[in-house]
């Protein structure tokens, strides 16, 4: 555990808490892509199946459970409790265009052709693109609430910090995982446009609004 990894995990945790609180406090999931949230639930489920097969640390176990519970809790709030507020007209990204290539890629490029390993690889590939329905929704409506922007910023920052973690681990521990690194770069790059808007607009107190 190094500082980049810890800050990355905390940023990730902050993102899921912001999202849950936003939905809970406003009693609304307006502006949130249910499709991205379904993909994230699939990501955590596929990756954290190792909860039952390998123990790493209390920290890892607790965080995994928190991410799983928060993710399914978000789905519950969006698709059951506050279903009426779900903006499905703007949430139209075809997720099969993300899921199927990730399945194929996971079957072709993995560290080991075993069920758990392929699921882990699939989750890494899928996580890298899971935010696209959300970004698509923001671009379609042309704006995002500030709280949604904070969520996206924290979520994007998390994998960016993991990149520094991997650079650190490469030098300090001789440890690297090319699948995670390349997917992590893709994931972080997808947020760049958003980061720019966040820094130039939201941090100056303005609403995130895309140029017409």
């Amino acid at each position: 555990m190094n500082i980049f990894r810890l800050l990355g995990d905390l940023s990730h945790l902050l993102a899921v808490i912001i999202l849950l609180l936003k939905i809970w406090k406003t009693r609304s999931c307006a502006g949130i892509s249910g499709r991205s949230q379904i993909l994230f639930a699939a990501v955590y489920t596929a990756r954290y199946l190792d909860l039952v097969t390998s123990y790493i640390s209390a920290y890892n176990t607790v965080m995994k459970i928190v991410f799983l519970v928060a993710s399914y809790g978000t789905l519950y709030l969006m698709f059951l409790k506050f279903k009426a507020t779900y903006d499905h007209n703007h949430d139209t990204f075809r997720i099969e265009f993300l899921v199927l290539p990730c399945v194929i890629l996971a079957l072709l490029i993995n560290h080991d052709f075993s069920a758990l390993e392929i699921l882990w690889t699939f989750s890494i590939y899928l996580e890298s693109v899971a935010i696209l329905p959300q970004l698509f929704m923001v671009s379609k409506t042309g704006e995002a609430e500030s709280i949604t922007s904070h969520y996206l910023f924290a979520l994007g920052t998390y994998r960016g910090l993991y990149l520094f973690n991997w650079i650190y681990r490469y030098y300090a521990e001789d440890h690297y995982d090319l699948i995670a690194i390349i997917a992590g770069i893709v994931q972080t790059v997808l947020y760049c446009d958003f980061f720019y808007l966040y820094i130039t607009k939201v941090l100056k107190g303005k609403k995130l609004q895309l140029p017409a």
Partner: peptide
């Protein structure tokens, strides 16, 4: 090099 199948990150 550590085993790739040992995933210790989140």
């Amino acid at each position: 090099l550590q085993s790739f199948t040992h995933h210790d990150e989140l």
